[in-house]
């Protein structure tokens, strides 16, 4: 820095001193009532922004969608031969079939059996015309993610509930919530907006990248390379 620069800095620092206004003289000491008013005003704003952050924001962020058919897991579990496997099975090449296709249903649902409204809708709109049900997938990860059910269910002997919650024994499918910004399901982030604490029993586990990595770190001693979970 050149000497002229220095001089300028010094003078500019000195300048405010010379023009500093005299301290304001209060006629009376500051009143406590106006202090309270400021505090209340602040608190109202503070609580208001908290409320909008915790309650309004999640409402705005997620749009709600109904599943095409309200599938009832509980009544089917008694009817099928092989529990979850009858519909959610592993193919011989190790991949997981995921949500079942129509072939898992038609054996029983060629015709309406009980006349329950959901069943009538299912048979009329999907089975008879032969259309696959466009299920919304709560746990669906972004396209770039590779997830292996066989590694967790067979390799690590984990139960479906430990990740998905108790949807497998539920009588109604929950409402699907889609993040309006990213288009991903709310289950990925988790139902608690702050992500503090553990999910309620029966609720699905949040499955952001760090949630996967935290468990891997705990169980395998390292978070794994990118290509373990990405493709």
């Amino acid at each position: 820095m050149s000497s002229t620069d220095k001089n300028q800095t010094v003078s500019s620092e000195a300048a405010p001193d010379s023009v500093t206004p005299e301290p304001e003289i209060h006629d009376s000491p500051p009143s406590t009532t106006s202090g309270w008013a400021v505090f209340m005003f602040f608190m109202i704003g503070f609580v208001g922004s908290l409320l909008s952050g915790w309650i309004l924001f999640p409402e705005l962020l997620y749009s709600k969608k109904e599943q095409p058919i309200d599938f009832n897991h509980a009544i089917h579990l008694d009817l099928v031969y092989d529990g979850c496997n009858s519909c959610h099975y592993f193919r011989d090449d190790g991949t997981f079939a995921g949500v079942p296709g129509m072939d898992s249903c038609v054996d029983c649902h060629m015709d309406v059996m009980t006349g329950a409204p959901e069943e009538v809708k299912f048979v009329d709109e999907y089975v008879t015309p032969g259309i696959e049900v466009p299920w919304l997938i709560y746990s669906e990860q972004p396209d770039c993610v590779f997830f292996s059910h066989s590694a967790h269910v067979i390799g690590a002997d984990m139960s479906c509930e430990s990740c998905h919650g108790d949807i497998g024994t539920s009588t109604h499918l929950p409402v699907y919530q889609e993040n309006r910004l990213t288009g991903y399901s709310r289950d990925i982030w988790g139902h608690s907006i702050s992500r503090l604490g553990k999910p309620e029993p029966g609720e699905p586990k949040p499955m952001k990248m760090n949630d996967c990595a935290d468990c891997h770190l705990e169980k395998m001693g390292h978070k794994g390379a990118c290509f373990q979970c990405h493709k």
Binding site: F90, D92, G94, F146, S148, S150, A151, G155, K231
Partner: peptide
Amino acid sequence: QLARDKAYLEK
């Protein structure tokens, strides 16, 4: 990844 999937299935 897919080969690992199969290996897991076959233990």
